[in-house]
């Protein structure tokens, strides 16, 4: 009897199936994104986990090398992600085979790697989960951004984006210390149109939402919720809490620089830029040169476009 778990991130529902309970285990904070497996919806992505004791070399054209944990190959059947760790030997400790629409995947776990090191294997362990969602988003009106999403206290929902060190977790801590707000994530936010399954009668399908993700930052905020996106702020350390409206092209460039997009196919980059143009046309974008104290929060709360 196979076991299965479903989770949904950024409107993408993933179903993981395996022969053991541990194959489909969702570790925190991914577990918070679990949804009912017996729901009538067909998942967007189906992943089958199995174990192998034989090593098969990676075939096909090498597409991308992350420089560390994962490498990507392409062949006529689809894409193959190899995951390696120096702590688990020379061979890949797992391989993900997936079709080019990112709908069906097989995750092959290398039993020898884990047996030799007496490790607890978590098939969906980061970065596999994020890579899977990031690639699947190339098939949707959606993109993942490096940012903190804050809802409230007055119902306003703002997205503050920034590179590492720009002040995302600091911003999350500041807001929660001062006001009753929801932080969807303090590091990774998915911005997208509503998927069909989440549309309510009368909803405008072109509205842009932001979704929380499990890939949180130092402040550890990760909520499986979404909010209608109202404004975007590019965080920069500065003085005076100065807001500067960005032009369409400036907004697209700044957002792209803080996005998570597979760079190994030009179609994915073009899709990302096209969707970011839609975002820039719909949502006001500002550069925010801020000082990390309560005045930075009040500046946003009192701000009008």
């Amino acid at each position: 009897m196979p076991h299965c778990s479903d989770f949904r991130i950024g409107g993408i529902q993933v179903r993981v199936t395996g022969g053991n309970v541990s194959d489909v285990a969702l570790a925190p904070p991914l577990d918070a994104f679990r949804v009912e497996s017996n729901c009538p919806h067909v998942p967007d992505v189906a992943v089958q986990v199995h174990w192998s004791t034989t090593y098969t070399p990676s075939l096909g054209r090498s597409l991308f090398d992350s420089g560390s944990i994962w490498r990507l190959h392409e062949n006529n059947r689809g894409l193959q992600f190899d995951f390696r760790s120096t702590n688990l030997g020379d061979q890949p400790y797992k391989k993900l085979f997936v079709d080019k629409q990112f709908r069906t995947a097989t995750l092959q776990m290398n039993a020898k790697c884990f047996a030799a090191h007496a490790c607890v294997a978590l098939p969906l362990e980061y970065p596999l989960d994020e890579l899977l969602i990031m690639h699947r988003l190339t098939q949707e009106p959606a993109i993942e951004l490096h940012g903190v999403g804050i809802v409230g206290p007055n119902g306003a929902s703002n997205l503050f984006i920034g590179h590492s060190g720009a002040g995302k977790s600091t911003t999350a801590r500041l807001w929660t210390s001062l006001h009753p707000v929801k932080i969807l994530s303090d590091d990774r936010i998915i911005v997208r149109e509503s998927p069909a399954r989440e549309l309510q009668p009368g909803d405008d399908p072109r509205q842009i939402f932001m979704y929380g993700t499990p890939w949180h930052g130092e402040a550890c905020f990760a909520l499986p919720e979404r909010a209608l996106l109202q404004r975007i702020f590019i965080l920069e350390h500065g003085s005076g809490n100065v807001l500067t409206r960005l032009s369409r092209s400036q907004a697209v460039a700044e957002l792209f620089a803080r996005s998570f997009v597979p760079f190994h196919r030009h179609e994915y980059v073009e899709h990302a830029l096209s969707f970011l143009e839609q975002v820039a046309d719909s949502i006001p974008c500002y550069r925010y040169d801020f000082e990390p104290d309560e005045r930075a929060v009040e500046r946003i709360l009192n701000f009008r476009d």
């Binding site: 560390s68 944990i69 995951f83 702590n87 688990l88 490790c119 994020e130 890939w215 930052g217």
Partner: peptide
Amino acid sequence: VLGHCKVMGSNGPGQPGGCSFLCSSAGS
């Protein structure tokens, strides 16, 4: 490119001193 674990100094599963949850998603 998500090439590394998000925890500083972590380089995937199988770290000394324990193995599970080591390629954590925490940190930016």
